[in-house]
């Protein structure tokens, strides 16, 4: 059977569930950005711009973060979803470009996933938009990219850990949270297990036979990292972002591809989602 990735579709509710978690994470990350930007406004603060230094007035900070939070909230609740998502995508890029201290891996991943989701119809279900314009299935090709992105994160995270320093346990020991110092003795074992788990997750999420184990393992893995590692709030955000894509994987492999898009279920009028 010849697979046409462009014609593939996915249940709109699954993408909607991802949208809600990504949007919630975007609100949280935006609040962090506000804290950092506010501190960067202090003339005595260290500034490390990507390009040229921007004079961070109060108005600019309020504008950037305000747009960020409003678009994130609109994206989460599914109001003018695609417009909100694209605005969020743009404003995140502009805000992080202000200073290198605003970059984080999970903000970068969030940015990519939000942008990709808006290439489909993330507001087609479980949203304000869907109350008048509901769609049962939405284009899957952006979802394929989202899932592939998540796999790449796992695989490259594993690859960078394949070095003697990390595998010896010394790196993990230094990153353990103060409350998790009791686990120091297990650092070496955890250091060996971690890239194995990440590699497994990066591949097994695509396997219909192994996916349930990957989902269970991934959830446990992401529940444990905020407990054991420093920076728990950022790790909670990162965990939410990663886990939010798990239910997108089923149905994307050639063995699972269903028939091309089924008819949408219009309520009042048009069947397409606005924005």
């Amino acid at each position: 059977m010849r697979i046409d990735p462009v014609a593939m579709t996915i249940d709109a509710r699954r993408l909607a569930a991802t949208r809600i978690l990504l949007g919630g994470s975007a609100v949280s990350v935006g609040l962090h950005a506000y804290r950092v930007l506010s501190e960067l406004r202090d003339p005595d603060s260290l500034r490390l711009p990507f390009l040229t230094e921007i004079d961070l007035t109060g108005a600019i900070v309020v504008l950037l973060v305000g747009l960020w939070l409003v678009s994130a909230a609109a994206y989460t609740i599914g109001w003018k979803t695609n417009v909100a998502g694209r605005l969020l995508f743009g404003i995140m890029a502009v805000t992080v470009a202000v200073d290198q201290q605003l970059y984080s891996n999970h903000a970068y991943l969030l940015w990519l996933l939000v942008g990709l989701s808006t290439l489909s119809r993330p507001g087609a279900a479980w949203s304000l938009d869907s109350r008048t314009h509901h769609q049962v299935r939405v284009p899957a090709w952006p979802v394929v990219l989202m899932c592939t992105q998540v796999s790449l994160v796992y695989l490259f995270a594993a690859a960078t850990k394949l070095n003697p320093d990390f595998l010896s346990g010394l790196m993990l020991e230094r990153w353990l949270a103060p409350s998790a110092q009791w686990a120091v003795g297990a650092s070496r074992a955890m250091s060996v297990i971690t890239p194995i788990v990440e590699s497994f997750l990066g591949l097994a999420l695509w396997s219909p036979r192994l996916r349930r184990f990957a989902i269970l393992g991934g959830v446990l893995f992401h529940l444990s990292t905020p407990i054991f590692m420093v920076g728990p709030l950022e790790l909670i955000e990162f965990s939410a972002i990663m886990v939010s894509t798990y239910w997108l994987f089923p149905g994307l492999t050639p063995a699972e591809v269903t028939a091309p898009s089924q008819p949408s279920r219009p309520t009042d009028s048009a069947s397409t989602v606005p924005g």
Binding site: Y103, N105, Y108, L152, V153, F156, A157, T160, K161, N163, D165, F166, M171, L172, R174, W175, M229, F238
Partner: peptide, 12 residues
């Protein structure tokens, strides 16, 4: 390195 997904694989 940025954009490399190198979380926690390096010394603080």
């Amino acid at each position: 390195a940025r954009f490399g997904w190198q979380m926690y694989s390096y010394p603080p």
